[in-house]
């Protein structure tokens, strides 16, 4: 299977070839890769891509998985319409 056909991030449509290309250029932390590819910043908040990217980096850097730090977990857990938030805030 071609690396181009292996999807890493479904929110931003990033494939394994793009990921490996950047790792070979020296972007070898999730924080760096996130800013180049938008991985982990889409509606699923990294639920799909981050464990995959972490594993790919561990293989590439020949390090144990736990030595590849994950980025900050940010709110919100699920997407919420701004109107619903505004309504809630006005009723408080």
């Amino acid at each position: 299977m071609s690396k181009k056909d292996i999807i890493i991030c479904r929110c931003e449509d990033i494939n394994l070839e793009e990921l490996h290309h950047l790792m070979e250029q020296g972007f070898t932390s999730i924080e760096d890769l996130k800013r180049q590819l938008r991985i982990g910043m889409g509606p699923c908040q990294g639920a799909t891509c981050l464990p995959i990217v972490q594993r790919e980096l561990a293989i590439f850097l020949k390090k144990p998985l736990e030595e590849i730090p994950l980025p900050t977990v940010r709110p919100l857990t699920l997407g919420v319409p701004l109107k619903a938030i505004a309504k809630g805030a006005k009723n408080e």
């Binding site: 509606p43 908040q45 319409p81 938030i85 505004a86 006005k90």
Partner: peptide, 20 residues
Amino acid sequence: AKTIDDILPKIGELRVIRQW
């Protein structure tokens, strides 16, 4: 959310996915 509801109400229909 309240500010958007005032000035750009249509944008208020969008979901927030992340804040920092």
